[in-house]
Design a protein around this nucleic acid. Structure first.
Lengths: 121, 121
DNA sequence: TTGATACGTGACCATATAGTCACATATCAT
DNA sequence: ATGATATGTGACTATATGGTCACGTATCAA
């Protein structure tokens, strides 16, 4: 449920190496359960991993679905694409032309350039 | 001086709205001084802005140059491009083909995929 | 030199975050 | 029902972060 300020939660979620590693694990195999993901982080307890997953879920980067007593986690690339469109393409100028060409066909987002103007004072 | 783990610092820097607004201000006019940038954040003291700028500088997102008693701040898009190449393009699968085509000519980075493999147990 | 301007440093505080643990709930198999 | 498995909750600690302030340094102008 990202509000007007989508960027913050996504960047924040991506700012942690463990969380990026979690995305990486889901990238190599999607739909893993909590315990399956925990196998990759022996230095951390299940609760630590759970918290990281919930941060990723709040940023909408992973989607979850209960299945019996397990819970499957799925990678959701949409927020990353949005961030790429709204932010990255703006500053990585050389990429802009290539990205805006793909823009609407990927996200079908309304604004392409940049709608956020933090202050005008 | 970003080590092997470039992503963390960049994402962390981008995770703050004030810092993104600072980049935005530099985008609209590059080479501004601290005081000039402070005009845009009346709700914050000069020290707050200074700290944010130093975070951006440590992430290599802004470059600085002393000039007399002032200090100019310049936007550096390279880390954003690197992050786009190493991370964004990986998950935003539909973008990949377009981005990897531009990869070497933009960064000339050695490893494109992802060298950090947290554990192998 | 004096004063004003522009930036820097270190200490400091409040809050957020990462991580753990005891305990609780839900599901599956028998 | 019983036990094992899989996940969830709330409290808790330690550290990181955002932000401010008192004070200090460097530069420009007169």
């Amino acid at each position: 449920m990202q509000s007007v300020e989508q960027g913050t939660e996504v960047f924040r979620a991506l700012a942690d190496p463990t969380r990026r590693a979690l995305l990486d694990r889901l990238f190599s195999q999607d739909g893993q359960t909590l315990n399956e993901l925990c196998q990759n982080f022996p230095e951390m307890t299940r609760f630590g991993v759970m918290k990281h997953l919930s941060v990723l879920a709040e940023a909408d980067l992973v989607l979850t679905a209960r299945q019996g007593r397990t819970k499957r986690h799925y990678l959701n690339p949409v927020p990353i694409e949005q961030v790429a469109n709204r932010w990255i393409s703006k500053y990585a100028a050389r990429f802009t032309s290539a990205l805006v060409a793909l823009d609407d066909q990927v996200i079908a987002g309304s604004e392409t350039e940049e709608s956020r103007r933090p202050e005008s004072a």
